[in-house]
Simulated scan of single mutants.
Amino acid sequence: EEKAKIIIKNSELENSQVAETINNYGLSHSEVKEVARDVVTQETLNKPNVYIQKEEPVDAKLGDIWYKIEE
């Protein structure tokens, strides 16, 4: 629980810093979306896909994670 509170607090601080940067540079909505898309693409480049489904995924690659849903 304490770790979750710390993570939430850090996330709030990071979000505050992002908002301040956007305001300071006068970025438009479309510019912010483009930058966010680039950041997400870069940060998830080598991350495994996570599948949560009943059937084993057919397009999974080595390192991907599958959580099987049981009925």
Rank of each mutant, 00 (worst) to 15 (best):
T44L: 04
N49G: 04
N24E: 15
A19E: 15
K33I: 07
N10M: 06
I7H: 06
H29F: 14
R37Y: 07
S30C: 06
K61V: 08
Y51S: 08
K68L: 11
I7C: 06
N24D: 15
I22L: 10
K61F: 01
P57N: 06
Y25I: 15
L45H: 12
V50A: 06
K33T: 09
G63H: 10
E70T: 14
K33N: 12
A19R: 04
E12Y: 00
A60Y: 06
N23G: 10
S28Y: 05
H29A: 12
E56A: 11
V40F: 14
V18H: 02
T21V: 14
E14S: 13
E20I: 10
E14P: 04
T44R: 12
T21H: 10
L13V: 11
L62G: 11
I22G: 04
I22S: 05
N24Y: 11
R37W: 05
E12F: 00
W66Y: 06
K47I: 00
V50Q: 05
V58C: 00
E34I: 10
K68S: 12
Y67C: 08
Y25F: 15
L27E: 00
S28H: 03
I69N: 02
T41Q: 11
T41P: 03
V32R: 01
K9D: 01
L27G: 05
Y51K: 02
V35N: 03
V18T: 08
S30D: 14
T41V: 09
P57D: 03
P48I: 01
R37N: 11
L27F: 12
A4C: 10
I7D: 09
L27C: 08
Q42V: 12
W66E: 05
E55T: 11
R37A: 13
H29G: 07
R37D: 07
L62H: 13
E1M: 09
E20R: 01
A4M: 14
P48T: 03
S28M: 08
I22C: 08
E55S: 11
Y51T: 13
L27K: 02
V32M: 08
E70W: 02
E12W: 00
G26I: 11
E71A: 12
N49Q: 09
I8T: 14
V32E: 04
E12Q: 12
E2P: 03
I22N: 02
A19H: 08
